[in-house]
Amino acid sequence: MIDLLNAIVALANFVIVPAIAYGSQLALGALGVTLIYGILRFSNFAHGDTMAFGAMVTILATWGLQSLGVNLGIFPTALLALPIGIAGTALLVLATDKMVYQFYREQKAAPVILVIVSMGVMFIMNGLVRFIIGPDDQRFADGARFIITARDFKELTGLEEGLAIKSTAALTVVVAIIVVMLLFWFLNNTRTGKSMRAFSDNEDLALLSGINPERVVMITWIIVAALATTAGVLYGLDKSFKPFTYFQLLLPIFASAIVGGLGNPLGAIAGGFVIAFSEVTVTYAFKKVAGYLLPEAWEPDSLVQLLSTDYKFAVSFAILVIVLLFKPTGLFSGKAL
């Protein structure tokens, strides 16, 4: 029984808790992608670098607050700087829409054209972020590091295996839940949210109903900026901030949106956790867990790892290909590509 409990704790420590935090971050990122696709009808390849830009602005604001001696005690100072990051990112995406996307929208350009344009925007944003803050890792998390440490858990339970829960992982889950609840309340209970949903379902009918398309576009970009910045900051707090990492996150974020059902907000959340648990589980070395569960004579000598962590994005790619081949509308029947 003790060995079973140790195995469960080891699994929670290295698979369940990290996957829940990572899944929350992917879900927020995928929500931004699915809103753009559902309302503006194109796949925004610049979303990962939008996250990087929002995180960068938040980091700069955090450093400014820290230099003034402002902090939140046990909580990261970045929470105070987050509204500044959201505002800066909203200004950037609105300016980008005005200078770039609006022209192609007025020309009724094919979605593939907007995809190509968004790739150009992606490279510009990526270069801008690296020019301003540099290409290296930037750590900006302060406050309490752990809710519970492995040592405290061992002393509390008497188990051999310890469970450590980082405060940033817990914060990620709590903030993600609050943001998702606010988003769904906004989309379902406000006049603007209902206008956005109507515009997404049938653009022509929405226009005949008197809905202002430019207002819908503006609100959509502001919400996407808030989601991207929040996701980028939470990922940076939980791990570290490096501009190129957000470029790499584009694959699992798009995989999350497509697996759940592109254009379906609920699907984006589910897809985020599917991708996160798949990546973490497939790349985890189960030797320790197997050592607790199996008889001593059967304990494995190898790591019992299906894939190295270097190949975790390959898991996202494989799942993405499988879904596109067999169920292109995703788990929650979103819009097919």
Rank of each mutant, 00 (worst) to 15 (best):
E160Y: 09
V33H: 02
A30K: 08
V274C: 03
A10Y: 05
T309Y: 00
S333D: 08
E279F: 06
L262R: 13
G120H: 08
A150H: 10
I319Q: 02
Y292C: 10
A290K: 12
V121A: 12
P295L: 02
E161T: 15
E160V: 14
A270G: 06
S308H: 05
K288L: 11
I148V: 15
L31A: 14
G261A: 01
F131N: 14
L307F: 04
P243H: 07
N44V: 11
I2V: 13
G127L: 11
V112K: 04
I178Y: 01
F75P: 15
G143E: 10
I74D: 07
I20L: 08
I258R: 00
I132P: 15
A198Q: 02
L208A: 09
F332M: 12
I223N: 07
A268T: 13
L114Q: 14
G261N: 05
L60Q: 12
A170F: 00
A276I: 04
L28V: 03
I148G: 02
L35R: 14
F153D: 03
M122F: 13
P328R: 07
T190W: 10
G64R: 09
Q25A: 01
L26R: 02
T220Q: 09
D137I: 06
Q66A: 15
A27L: 06
P83F: 02
D136F: 06
F75G: 11
T168Q: 02
K108A: 15
S333F: 04
M218S: 11
P18I: 00
R197A: 08
G127M: 09
V280W: 01
P300A: 12
F153L: 08
I113L: 13
L68R: 15
T62C: 04
V175H: 00
V217N: 13
H47G: 10
T157V: 12
T309C: 00
V15K: 01
V315C: 02
G261M: 02
I113T: 15
E155C: 04
L183E: 09
R130V: 14
I116A: 13
F273V: 01
A95R: 05
F146A: 11
F123K: 04
V115K: 09
L156Q: 12
Y101C: 07
A206T: 08
D204K: 06
A176F: 00
G162N: 13
E155W: 12
T50I: 14
G162E: 02
N6H: 08
A87L: 14
I253V: 13
T168D: 05
M122A: 14
I59L: 14
L262Y: 02
A110F: 14
A52T: 09
N212L: 09
G236D: 03
